[in-house]
Nucleic acid binder design. Sequence first.
DNA 1: AATGAAATCATTATCCA
DNA 2: TGGATAATGATTTCATT
Lengths: 151, 151
Amino acid sequence: MIKDEINWSILLLLQQNARLTNAEIGRRVGLSSPAVTERIKKMEDLGVIKGYAANIDHRATGHQLKAIVTLKVFSGRLKPFLEIVRGFKEVVNCYRITGVENIIMEVILFDQNHLEEFIDKVIQYGETRTHIILSNVVENREIQRNTRKRV
Amino acid sequence: MIKDEINWSILLLLQQNARLTNAEIGRRVGLSSPAVTERIKKMEDLGVIKGYAANIDHRATGHQLKAIVTLKVFSGRLKPFLEIVRGFKEVVNCYRITGVENIIMEVILFDQNHLEEFIDKVIQYGETRTHIILSNVVENREIQRNTRKRV
DNA sequence: AATGAAATCATTATCCA
DNA sequence: TGGATAATGATTTCATT
């Protein structure tokens, strides 16, 4: 759990720019830099902060396509799929989900050939459905403090 | 485009830990820290690096549920939806996609009541399908250099 | 891209509420 | 327990080569 308002502010700042210095964060939230350092370290140790990642434009790395691929896994094929998917570099996110489909993946691909090769790899584990991503409407929004009424 | 191998190394390091100092990155890739600073700045300016985000555990912020919600938008309702979805704090990612559904969203929610409220908000824009996320199989994997054979 | 000087930052220890 | 302050060492920034 998050201790107080100041930690919420620190979390928001780090979600917006993880490369802010602790001194700069301190200035914005009204704390000294050692105090900020200690608060951040504690939240890292507690697992509140899981890590810090640079956000890369996939087109700049030569990846033309981004797609969502769902998988309705064949009977008995879930476990082997869960093993092998960790090795697929195209897959940047993979979730187990409820519903008719069991798996949903976010995939980054060089081109349509690459998409075809990828489908070939996963089709032996289940029935796939592919959605090409056309545009980003909301991207990587920060998790914020709960301000809604609780029931 | 990415200039050389060293920039790929820098990108990989920043995806794994965006809070590494430039001096530390320099040590690992064999450059001085001003050289690293300049390379990173150039990649930021070119839009190769879009930003740096702390990764927060949604359970630690009191959000019990994560879900995928797809939307088959009603005729004429896409534009108003695209406007309003930017204001929905629950939505951390939203894509326009090809296929029967037009929209796919990644949503973070406090509890099942919150999910119900969220569905109520979006259901006027189209037909929804909700998948609760059960677990993460692959999370936030780094985009890597292309090593596969090109055709 | 490296180097060196100056400013800023991180870290540690100590003290205080 | 949590934070401020001060000292030291590391880092960043800027100018120069």
